[in-house]
C-alpha cells in the first residue's frame, strides 16, 4: 500500500508540476524536505532519550505493569496475541495515556518502544503483525481528550467560547477511534490482508 502511495505521490507531483508550471518548486522541495526530515528525526533524539529513560524507571518501579493490569480486560480484547505481562503492553498503555493527555512528545517515544516490543513477538520480520496494526489504528485515530492547541488558536482569535470544541472533538474522536478499531479487526480477517498460514519454522513462538 505504501509502495503505491509513495510512487503515486512522486509521479503525480512531476505530472502536476509540468501542468501547473511549478517544476522549479517541485525540484527545490526535494532537497528541502530531505533536510527537514533529517533535522526532525535528529531533533527527536533528545526528547526520545528523556522519555525512554523515564519509562525505564517507571518499568523498574512496576508502574507500567500495574497500569497495564488495571485495564487488562480491554487490552486483552484489543491485543489477543500479546501476553498481558509482556513489556509491549506497558509501552502501549503509556503511549495511549500520553496521547490522551496531549503529551505528544512523550507519546512518540512510548509508541516507538511499543513497536520495538511488539516486533519481539512478531514471527514474520518485515510483515506487520495484527497487534501492530491494531496499535497503529488506535494511534492514527487520535485519542486526545482535550485538543489544547486548537483551543489556544480559537482563544487567540478572540472566540467567546473556545472550549465549545472540547465536547465536539471528544464525540468525533470517539467515533473515529471506534471506526479505526472496527476497521482494523475486520480487515485483518479479509483475504487481502490475512496473514499467511504459519510455516513450520514459525510454529513455535520465539522465547522472550
Amino acid at each position: 500500500m505504501l509502495n503505491i502511495i509513495w510512487l503515486g505521490l512522486i509521479i503525480l507531483s512531476v505530472v502536476f508540476g509540468i501542468i501547473t508550471g511549478k517544476i522549479p518548486a517541485v525540484v527545490a522541495s526535494v532537497t528541502e524536505s530531505a533536510k527537514f526530515a533529517f533535522e526532525l528525526a535528529l531533533g527527536l533524539t533528545g526528547i526520545m532519550s528523556l522519555w525512554l529513560g523515564m519509562m525505564r524507571i517507571a518499568e523498574e518501579a512496576g508502574f507500567v505493569r500495574a497500569l497495564a493490569k488495571a485495564i487488562r480486560p480491554l487490552m486483552r480484547r484489543l491485543f489477543p496475541d500479546v501476553p498481558i505481562e509482556h513489556p509491549a503492553m506497558g509501552a502501549i498503555v503509556m503511549n495511549i495515556a500520553a496521547n490522551m493527555l496531549g503529551l505528544g512528545n512523550a507519546a512518540t517515544p512510548f509508541g516507538l518502544k511499543a513497536m520495538a516490543e511488539l516486533e519481539t513477538l512478531n514471527p514474520r520480520p518485515g510483515v506487520a503483525s495484527n497487534a501492530m496494526c491494531t496499535f497503529l489504528a488506535i494511534n492514527t485515530s487520535s485519542v486526545q481528550l482535550i485538543p489544547t492547541s486548537a483551543i489556544a488558536f480559537l482563544a487567540a482569535a478572540g472566540a467567546a467560547h473556545p472550549t465549545d470544541i472540547i465536547i465536539t472533538s471528544l464525540v468525533a474522536t470517539t467515533f473515529s477511534t471506534l471506526a479505526g478499531i472496527v476497521a482494523v479487526k475486520f480487515l485483518e480477517k479479509t483475504p487481502m490482508y490475512r496473514l499467511p498460514k504459519p510455516e513450520v519454522s514459525y510454529d513455535v513462538q520465539p522465547a522472550q
Partner: peptide, 13 residues
Amino acid sequence: VNIRRTRHAVPAG
C-alpha cells in the same frame, strides 16, 4: 521495526 508489508494499517488509519 523495519516493517515493509504494512498490511491493513493504512486503510484502517
